[in-house]
Design a protein around this nucleic acid. Structure first.
Length: 272
DNA sequence: ACCACAACCTGGCCGC
DNA sequence: TGCGGCCAGGTTGTGG
């Protein structure tokens, strides 16, 4: 699933192919991919525009257009952006094609049709409420402590809340909590200063590892060149159904937190 | 302000 | 071998 490390990888690896290129056409094979009310104007406002930049906020990707508009792409759970030749057969489950002026295409592949594209004038209309970037310089243990404040929801749910911290999803939340030895159901406000410090460090460690391995291809995530990332090879508990804890050998448990599969080691991450 | 949950989608895998 | 059911989960919208 594309989370911060996956979207960061897509941004970095897409960049050399798209910066400075002009959009010559847009093919929508699944119209639901473009959110109303923009569908009517989507083509006319993208075709002919030059791509001047690419950026990421949390899990949101933005292509800056020469008109000043921003083309926002969200991969949701199963989306991939694959670079290919104009003459190439689109990958399976391609829902949209952005044609570029050098006979190159961006294929938006998405088996489950959750991914979206939209055109906005103001980035803040989408990312204005997002929490801080967990790899940013301002994300300190003190800030994490303030964010958790008096929150009583399970720490696992809070880590996945984009308005609290931007970019962490189900996989990296499980990995960070394991690395910090914190039970996923602990209320946010029950963490000691020491645990907050451990969690802060663990969040940054697992996200950086994910980026350095070019993302985790647990199922449908692909890099722009069509290859898979390898971050999942280093996962300790995420998606580890039926496996044992690599530290103590205890069977990994699966529970549902907010209807999300949550994996943890009951011995290394004891309930308080 | 905060918390909880349904809905959106469909392929892959498991057990029978 | 085929089939039913579970599992995967980011975001939005709604209601308490």
């Amino acid at each position: 699933m594309p989370e911060l490390p996956e979207v960061e990888t897509v941004k970095n690896e897409l960049s050399p192919y798209v910066i400075g290129r002009r959009i010559t056409g847009v093919t929508l094979l699944w119209e639901g991919m473009v959110r109303q009310p923009f569908l009517a104007e989507f083509r006319s406002h993208t075709i002919g525009q030059k791509i001047t930049g690419i950026s990421r906020h949390g899990k949101y990707l933005f292509l800056s257009l020469s008109s000043g508009d921003l083309l926002n792409i969200h991969l949701k759970m199963t989306g991939s952006l694959i670079i290919g030749q104009e003459s190439a057969e689109p990958p399976s489950y391609t829902r949209a094609i952005i044609h570029l002026d050098n006979d190159t295409n961006i294929f938006f592949r998405d088996p489950r049709k959750f991914g979206i594209m939209r055109l906005v004038k103001d980035k803040n209309s989408i990312v204005g409420k997002l929490g801080p970037e967990p790899l940013g310089a301002d994300f300190t243990p003190q800030l994490l402590g303030r964010l958790l404040g008096k929150r009583t929801a399970p720490i696992k749910a809070l880590l996945c809340d984009q308005n609290l911290i931007a970019g962490i999803g189900n996989m990296y939340a499980d990995e960070a909590l394991f690395a910090a030895k914190i039970h996923p159901l602990r209320p946010g406000n029950s963490l000691s200063p020491e645990e907050i410090k451990r969690l802060h460090s663990a969040i940054r460690r697992v996200l950086r590892a994910g980026i350095s391995k070019k993302g985790a291809s647990t199922n449908t995530y692909f890099r722009p060149d069509g290859t898979r990332g390898t971050a999942h090879d280093e996962f300790k508990v995420a998606h580890a159904r039926g496996k044992s804890c690599p530290v103590c050998g205890t069977p990994i448990e699966r529970i549902a937190v907010r209807h999300r599969g949550t994996y943890f080691c009951p011995k290394c991450q004891p309930a308080l």
